[in-house]
């Protein structure tokens, strides 16, 4: 099943996001080996050059490192992964707040609504 990529944003950026999510969500554990560029490209149904570019970018950010002969691995720096997780969470929350604002809710109202929704879920 090809990855769900949107064609109006750069593909390599979307690939980075998918892999970041896979790391944060634990699909890849710290120190895990990533599949080869070719295999990943085939799985995502994208050009190997694009996959290569995305992985190079992930490498530059330090999230992934490569060992010359044996391939690419996920960082073992768990703090870095935690930091990424928090920053992704923050992005999602900001996005949500922005959408609520568009609907006409102030921050306090949003919080009240959220508390109510969470209570509703429990009962």
């Amino acid at each position: 099943m090809p990855w769900n990529l949107n064609s109006d944003r750069p593909i390599f950026i979307q690939i980075i996001e998918v892999i970041q999510l896979d790391i944060v969500s634990g699909k890849y554990a710290p120190g895990d080996k990533l599949p080869s560029v070719r295999d990943l490209a085939q799985e995502a149904a994208v050009n190997p050059n694009t996959m290569q570019k995305a992985l190079a970018e992930l490498e530059r950010s330090g999230l992934v490192f490569s060992q010359r002969t044996s391939g690419r691995f996920i960082t073992e720096d768990t703090k870095m992964i935690e930091d990424l997780k928090s920053s992704l969470a923050k992005e999602k929350i900001e996005e949500f707040l922005e959408n609520m604002q568009k609907l006409g809710f102030k921050k306090e109202e949003t919080i009240t609504l959220m508390t109510e929704t969470l209570k509703g879920e429990k009962s």
Partner: peptide, 8 residues
């Protein structure tokens, strides 16, 4: 639309 994701 069908091929653009594999093009570079």
């Amino acid at each position: 639309a069908d091929v653009e994701n594999i093009l570079d």
